[in-house]
Amino acid sequence: MKELPLEKLQDIDNETFDEHSDYKQPEKLIDEAKDMEPFRLSKAYVRLVSYVQALNAACTGIKDYHVHYSSRVANVLDVLEQVQEITDSVSLEPGRHRFGNPAFRRWHAKLLHRAPTILDTIVPSSLGSAQIELLDYFLGSFGNAQRIDFGTGHELNFLGFLKGLDLLNLLTYEDCAAVGLYVSHKYLEVCRKLVIKYRLEPAGSHGVWGLDDHFFIPYIFGSSQLAAPGGNTLGLRPTAILDKKLTKELSKSNLYFSAIDFINVMKKGPFYEHSPILYDITAVPSWSKVNQGLLKMYDVEVLSKYPVVQHFHFGNLFPFQQFV
């Protein structure tokens, strides 16, 4: 990721929003590939990058994603629990379906209907005018109803939703470790159930040459968990992911191993065949280098890819205006 000037980061980190701020319906402003250059110079891009970096730093060296969390984070977890309840309530369409189960469209319609009430869990009435922006990122966090797919663009929208809460002071800097670890863990649980139940297609996947069919963030924050200034927290090298039994055990505490375990559930055959990029990463000598490499890869493979970022919208929380 870009190394952002300290004074620029301080400017953007010190900006806050309240009941007196202006909010608007976020707009689709990336319509073609040439719009990527202004995006990567925008305030929105800087805000997303700085938030990923802040969450990543807060996760460093924390062995277990089951961390202590504030009442603010508890509200976010409650929101995710309500999303999970919708999944439990929407049954599958019978019969064989070539591309995912059409019941996912009913699931999304139910989420759309309930979303304003769900967000009331975390957004006080005094900030009700901000819901128009938060709703856009929230609804974009759980796959696409028309394509019946899920991918890193939806994951990016969830980061936007979380950063939006942060800008509104509904999450704070003190929550970064809990957001990067426990909230990410719960979000992954919700989305994995969606992927499995409704057989969601990978969105924007590079196929076998992508890092993962659906996710990216757990690899960043999970590798940060394993990195520490003096080495790594578990005394394990990246090759440890090839041990399925160990991976299953560590999936209960580490996001990286949790992501690998999900792949082991979803895919058959030799790991080096179905996940060659992750297999190549096992040759990296330390988790800190893995983490640094993944941050750079996220910038290249997610934040620089038109097919992914075209679905991210821009309002006052994430302005498209030039910043860098």
Rank of each mutant, 00 (worst) to 15 (best):
M1W: 04
E3L: 13
E3F: 11
L4D: 03
L9N: 14
D11A: 15
S21T: 06
Y23M: 00
Y23V: 07
L29R: 01
I30M: 00
D31P: 01
A33E: 03
L41R: 11
K43Y: 10
Y45K: 01
V46S: 02
A54Q: 10
A54R: 14
A57T: 11
I62C: 13
I62T: 13
I62Q: 14
K63E: 08
D64Y: 11
H68S: 15
S70E: 13
R72L: 14
L80D: 04
E85H: 10
E93V: 09
R98C: 04
F99Q: 09
R105D: 09
R105K: 14
A109I: 03
L119C: 02
D120I: 07
D120G: 15
P124F: 09
S125T: 11
L127Q: 04
G128E: 12
A130M: 12
D136T: 13
D136L: 03
Y137K: 09
S141H: 06
S141L: 10
T152K: 01
F158D: 00
F158Q: 03
K163S: 04
L165K: 00
D166Q: 07
L168A: 11
N169P: 03
N169L: 15
L170H: 04
Y173L: 13
G180T: 13
V183I: 07
H185F: 14
Y187C: 04
Y187P: 10
V190L: 14
L194C: 10
L194R: 15
L194Q: 03
K197Q: 01
R199E: 13
E201G: 06
E201W: 02
G204A: 09
W209T: 12
G210P: 02
D212W: 04
F216G: 12
F216T: 11
I217A: 00
I217G: 00
G222K: 10
G231N: 10
T233K: 09
G235Q: 13
L236Q: 07
P238G: 14
T239W: 11
L255N: 04
L255T: 10
D261R: 06
I263Q: 12
M266G: 15
F271N: 01
H274K: 06
L278V: 05
I281N: 03
I281K: 02
I281P: 00
A283Y: 06
A283V: 11
V284A: 12
V284N: 05
W287A: 05
V290C: 11
G293K: 06
L295N: 15
K296S: 11
M297D: 09
M297E: 08
M297F: 09
M297R: 13
D299I: 08
V302E: 00
Y306R: 00
V308D: 00
V308N: 03
V308W: 04
V309D: 02
V309K: 02
H313G: 03
G315F: 14
F320C: 01
F323Y: 07
F323I: 05
V324E: 12
